[in-house]
Write a protein that binds this DNA or RNA. Sequence first.
DNA 1: TGTGAAAAGCAGCCTGC
DNA 2: GCAGGCTGCTTTTCACA
Lengths: 158, 158
Amino acid sequence: MFPLDRTDRVLLHALQADGRATVKELGAAAGLSPSAAHERVRRLQRAGVVTGVHAALDPSAVGIGLQALIQVQLTRHSRETLASFREHALSLPETLAVAHVTGAMDFLVRVGVRDSDHLRDLALDAFTTRPEVARLETAIVYEHVLATHWPVVTRDER
Amino acid sequence: MFPLDRTDRVLLHALQADGRATVKELGAAAGLSPSAAHERVRRLQRAGVVTGVHAALDPSAVGIGLQALIQVQLTRHSRETLASFREHALSLPETLAVAHVTGAMDFLVRVGVRDSDHLRDLALDAFTTRPEVARLETAIVYEHVLATHWPVVTRDER
DNA sequence: TGTGAAAAGCAGCCTGC
DNA sequence: GCAGGCTGCTTTTCACA
């Protein structure tokens, strides 16, 4: 694991809060010169600690009137079946997130749709038709909030 | 709803793929001059279509060895109970996402922990002790993938 | 790893279509 | 609503500590 010190944590925090922050701002937050902050940010990216910087959109602004959680139980649990369903779910334009989990249901797919008609069409056309799918259970998502600040749960306090 | 044309969609797509892209690059992707791209990006931000730009981190790099989905059934469904549990869940450093959903379970909280000991401590100390919580069901998350490209599901093709 | 200076490139603004 | 030019700031590199 890439060792993260206090300065790295400050930089990561700042980049999670505002991914477009300038190196100058990041440096100021971490008590570093712009060039030093730049070097550290580049290193964090090269080391794969920062996997990317992405814009977050307002669901309703892009036509998503409804979010749902489609819980899927597979017919079989072979590697092929899992991989095949995973790929399919990720390929759907409505898919916002895919989770492969333990328990009665194998996959949870969070989707963004226009309305309940769109949701029904999606469930019937893109899920129940699949040979991998044994059972579906769909829940409406009233609200979904992503944490914008991941803590560094490591204990070392370097 | 803010009207989005083809050019806006290209800009949004580019910003989702790389939130640190320069206005020059965004313009090139959309077939626009840097100044025009800049103007449109600013408008998309002011209109709230782009709610923010955030760095994504590698879970294992920040000490998250395990992710779990804690499903919570509440004792009561009053506005106060819902709000109180929601706030509590969002305040936990381990929380990665919170969803309020329909169905047997009321909330789904995705958490990032070091290991199974950490998960047990979290469940016992931060969930089962809460008066709002009637029942817990915890599932291990083998894999979680967030879509980095939200489609614009609107139909108008302006 | 960090600083500071210098060069290159970009953002931000303005003017004219 | 867009292009092009201008100015100041930011990024990026490099020598040095």
